[in-house]
């Protein structure tokens, strides 16, 4: 690739202690994120997919500087974000914003919309309080809401409109990267389409990058330039979206794609991936996927495969290589 990436995550581990007993002694760790490396270039959309508990949201929290990793570094334009202080830190905090899944839980029900979308601006002293209303109107116009929304409260809006308000709030900071954590997953199909279109318009207009976290592969397929697939805390496959979707290498990626019911496929032939996702507290030895993998051999049960492959498209599997 060309220049320095906007965001680079380098061998990051995020662990949570498991405490037991009367002295709350640490008895082990939940290894939520293990040895994850990723990059996001300026203007790029990176899709992050995986099932519940795979660590994708924890990784997002680390990127947002809300959960320090136990090892590894997260760099923003080359600088380690956990070593920043003062004005530099405040600047990076403005440049990385988030839109959450649940627009009912992530907007303060007691504040009018104008205040919700400009709160950050006032806190960062980017505008004076008396300029807030004008600025809010501009932000809301960007996400397709009119000035009549300014002094209304979150409960007066539908789910799709609330998600627009969340996006306006993120935009207020002039971010370079927006982390979308299941941002369209809770919306009805036609509303989801509107919000996806909005995200794509804003990307074109402001040159935004997105880290797009989703369990819905059809949405990721549509908007992500590159995609990383996580399983039990690790990235198991990563590459250009079209390539990964058309030629998945890792058996888990293949299974994830195969089990999504999609209109137009042969009907009544959905394959089933047997078994459970193992506990993150006691991950299986070797390849974490071996307990469910149809291709697993002895080596997979003892030796952990490294992420390897051609430039751009990598997978961690002993049996198949990218």
């Amino acid at each position: 690739m060309s220049s320095e990436p906007l965001l680079s995550v380098d061998r990051v581990n995020v662990w949570f202690p498991i405490r037991r007993g009367i002295f709350s002694r640490v008895r082990g760790h939940i290894r939520a994120v293990q040895d994850v490396s990723l990059t996001v270039q300026a203007g790029e959309v990176l899709g992050l997919v995986g099932e519940s508990g795979c660590g994708k949201s924890t990784l997002a929290r680390s990127i947002l500087m809300l959960q320090p990793p136990v090892s590894g570094t997260i760099r923003w334009q080359g600088r380690d974000v956990y070593r920043l202080g003062g004005e530099e830190l405040r600047q990076v905090r403005r440049q990385i914003q988030i839109v959450f899944q649940d627009p009912y839980a992530s907007l303060n029900p007691r504040l009018p919309v104008a205040q919700i979308v400009t709160e950050g601006l006032v806190a960062h002293r980017m505008i004076r309080a008396d300029q807030a209303a004008d600025r809010a109107a501009v932000l809301l116009a960007d996400v397709g809401l009119g000035t009549d929304a300014l002094y209304r409260y979150p409960h007066e809006f539908s789910g799709g409109q609330r998600q627009r308000i969340s996006i306006a709030r993120a935009l207020s900071m002039n971010p370079k990267l927006i982390v979308c954590d299941e941002a369209v997953s809770a919306l009805d199909v036609s509303i989801q389409a509107q919000v996806i279109n909005l995200l794509m318009e804003l990307r074109a207009k402001y040159g935004l990058s997105y880290l797009f976290i989703s369990h819905d592969l059809s949405v990721v397929k549509l908007i992500a330039d590159r995609v990383a697939v996580m399983y039990l805390g690790r990235v198991v496959e990563e590459g250009p979206t079209a390539q990964v979707m058309a030629n998945p290498v890792h058996p888990y990626t293949e299974a994830l794609l195969a089990v999504v019911p999609e209109v137009g496929r042969p009907r009544g032939q959905l394959p089933v991936l047997a078994g459970e996702i193992p506990s993150v507290a006691r991950p299986p030895a070797g390849c974490a996927f071996h307990t469910r993998c149809p291709l697993a051999v002895d080596r997979c049960r003892s030796e952990r495969p490294e992420l390897a492959g051609e430039e751009g498209h990598k997978a961690s599997c002993h049996i198949r290589s990218a």
Partner: peptide, 20 residues
């Protein structure tokens, strides 16, 4: 028809999704 067209699985990459 609009519901079917808004379904991301049926859309073309890079194109706009149809909305209602």
């Amino acid at each position: 028809r609009a519901l079917l067209k808004a379904n991301p699985a049926m859309a073309v990459r890079g194109g706009r999704l149809e909305t209602i």
